[in-house]
Design a protein around this nucleic acid. Structure first.
Lengths: 191, 191, 191, 191
DNA sequence: GATGAATGAGCGTTCATTCAT
DNA sequence: CATGAATGAACGCTCATTCAT
């Protein structure tokens, strides 16, 4: 059986390198070296480079949802739930900048387009919590009458942009600023 | 004398290919072929690949500003000016989808980061009309008290996202939808 | 583990080709083909073309010294030692014409100039036996009062020239001729 | 008719560039630029790059002979003539270092080998004065009984080496040193 | 005759992938 | 299973030469 820790090392190394250097700047040999495995070993766990990149994305997707829904209650009022999820999402981006950089890169690449097309679901398809949230918001008529991708754009557009600026040092996000950011998004969305 | 049409052909071919395939998917040889020139010819007009990519960006930058400010009046009330520029920007993205895809790609690449860092100006540094606009909005206290990059994020974040979705077919932007989109952004920004 | 025979094959092929065709006439692809390896394989053993060229030189340098000093005694009279080393050097050039051609070419190239500059030592800096010899000769006042590079020129100038002529067939060097050649150099140098 | 001054400019530019940068470092376009002519113009005067290189050599050859034989008398004693020619040759190398660098480079290249092979004449075939001189020396039995190429090697070997060292700054050649150098060569050659 | 823009073959080098060990 | 040496297609770029103007 394949040792899962080898796989973990590869995932970690690939994630770091892709996040730091971009997809271009991270040849398989370098990933292998950083993971402390042989170059060929990667191919035992991932069929090829593309699949590695896609699997990495899925790993992050699996990680982000619990982070976001930590302390989340289905029963809370809509606005509170919106603020909760938005805040948690932004915090995740800031707290795990390498993960964020990876997500962003994936998103802005042919991989990301293909991925979304496959899903044909809500914006940032990975977070189905948001899909559900927005659908409820529509049904309850508390959010503007927009298709789902538009609502996603009004939330994630600013958040991703702001997270990137924070990481690049163009902007400082403290607790208060985070809160105000999400509230501004709420203003955009609320009816 | 250098025939400007050869340069134009190269610019067009490179723009198309970069927009369609990404920077990776467009080797110099392919650009040359598509432009109907020899591979070496590109290097008469552009010192190397990086410079070609940067020049392409500058060409678009020079094109977008007049488009956006067409029919724009400094004297109009703030909200009207905001809606005007936002609308025109979104229209540009939709009308020239290849240009938009190029801009997006440039933006989400080390080139774009370097470029923004160089400018150290407003978000989407290319459109200084927006920088001016937002600064006035702050001074007049009609927009929320946010740093410039945040205001940019609240406008361009959704717009770029929505434009991409439109181009990819995830969303249909008609005149009414465009108007409502900009108004939602206005809600996010206005005090 | 790296198979040393692959490296050996590359060294041999490169040496031959450089010697026969000059640095220009030996593209990496041809070296690889002649060595019976893939083009990329060369780069496992040598960082790049320049380094291959320099390493080749070092290989020869390491080979020539033992050849020259074979049967050499520090205790012999100066003239005898001079004749010994000169003769052995010339024999080496003749016996390994490809090596000689390589050395010559390296010498007469920017590589060689840089190399000598680095060493700042006697002519044919590689053979420190000669440096030592000449310094003793100066101290004992058995050779003319010339700086080291001049003494080197008076010995190696003719030897290299004569070796080349021999290899190109412009001259026949038999044992007697070799002996007389070195003696003529001795005449030039001796006080 | 072709304007001879254009040709002269090309010759001058090519000579300088080849001497300074080596054959590799001097593309035709650069030569043309330095000569102040169009790139295509070179091909009106020289069939191709190889021929340019060979013609350049012939130009120098034609220039060096009068320089060397300046003040030279057929009637002087052999030793005096030898010293005269040797000294003048060395002076030429030092006085026209760019020409010397060119000659050296030509010599140590496939061009030089082919050239000598074509001539199959005296060493440094370019200077037939030397051929004559050595033949007389042989006939008069004032020089050692060596074939012509050997005699050439004993003279030009050291001279070229010493000239290069002087130009590269490894050695200082003043009048006295030049004289002593030629005399050392004489010792090597004289019977 | 002179030009220099255009060409494209050829170069050095990289790197995803394979497979013998 | 794991390895990493070996591969070779593909890349960005250069430059001798041509030829329309």
């Amino acid at each position: 059986m394949t040792k899962p820790d080898k796989r973990q090392e590869i995932v970690r190394a690939a994630l770091d390198l892709f996040a730091e250097q971009g997809f271009h700047g991270a040849p398989m040999a370098l990933i292998a070296e950083r993971a402390g495995v042989g170059a060929g070993t990667i191919y035992r766990y991932f069929e090829n480079r593309d699949i590695l990149i896609q699997e990495l994305y899925k790993e992050l997707e699996a990680e982000i949802t619990p982070f976001i829904t930590d302390g989340y209650s289905d029963q809370a009022p809509f606005r509170a739930r919106f603020l909760h999820l938005g805040t948690r999402f932004l915090r995740y981006c800031i707290e795990y900048p390498l993960h964020f950089r990876y997500l962003e890169q994936f998103h802005n690449s042919p991989y990301g387009v293909a991925y979304r097309r496959d899903k044909l679901l809500g914006k940032e398809g990975q977070c189905n919590v948001f899909t559900e949230l927005f659908e409820q918001g529509c049904a309850q008529q508390v959010v503007k009458d927009f298709p789902l991708p538009m609502l996603c754009a009004l939330l994630f557009g600013p958040l991703l942009s702001v997270a990137r600026d924070h990481i690049l040092g163009f902007l400082q996000l403290d607790d208060s600023m985070i809160e105000r950011t999400i509230e501004a998004c709420w203003d955009a969305i609320k009816r």
